[in-house]
Amino acid sequence: MNHALTLHGVTKRFGSFTAVSNLSLEVPKGCIYGFLGQNGAGKTTTIRMVMSIFHPDEGRISVLGHADAQEVKDRLGYLPEEKGLYKKMKTAEIVAYFGKLKGMDSRTANNKARELLTRYGLGDWLDKKCEAMSKGMGQKVQVLGSIIHEPELVILDEPFSGLDPVNRDTMRDIILDMKRQGRTVIFSTHGMEQAEQLCDYVMMIHKSKLQFAGTLSEIKKGRDLGIQLDYDGDGRVLAQLPGLSRINDNGKHAEIYLQVGTDPQRALRWLLDHVTVKRFDYREPSLHEIFVRTVDEANQKLTATAEAR
């Protein structure tokens, strides 16, 4: 019972296509949990099953201790991947409407809607119509609509997509505030940095299958350490680093992995000779690196099995 959500061997097929395959997962209460995966990996399908919008073909789901999310609908908050608002409704009205649909009484919902909007920087928009808002503002309004009833578990499907840095920070604050209040937040994202900074736990799905799940340190443990390098100069030369295994070069920053047995000190010396080194870190890999590597490995495995057949 100290899990907000458990999935046990959950499978969902659409015709001949398997969207989610034998997925098992536990989300502890009070944490922030990140769902990672490429587009079409099965994140949204998983989330929709949790919300009882779809029903799994196999396996069991338990949400807040109940087998069916319908029973605990009013204790859940949900921001779908496809986000939209009623254009003609006023901002405060629509947030309050979502609250009322979750069983809040009219007056509480109205007051709470205004309070939330004001707290998160939309105080000037309370009585304006949704159609007048920018995309980012609309997204904030929607998130507020999904948490107005103080749900125990909030599921946000890509809450950060399409937001500018300021709105991103607001979104982050909303999520952190939720955690501070002891609620559980699950969100899916493509932004590895956000996941790394915010999440207590992450999991990754690739092509319907779970690749890893756990706390960040659990996931990073045992993986190759890598060089985090900030530099100036021509990055093309980095590819010639002796003992190089893999490199993620971003122009000003590069993530470098060495072959087993290569001394990082020697690499540093080489780098000093070839580029202007501004920062040199030898540490565990970033989530980004883990993600990309997992995708690569999984794809290789799939090709191998396909060829074996």
Binding site: D74, G84, L85, F98, G145, S146
Partner: peptide
């Protein structure tokens, strides 16, 4: 359906 409100609604009502 077009403005995608349906899914939010369905998380609250049947």
């Amino acid at each position: 359906k077009g403005n995608r409100t349906i899914e939010v609604l369905l998380s609250s009502v049947s």
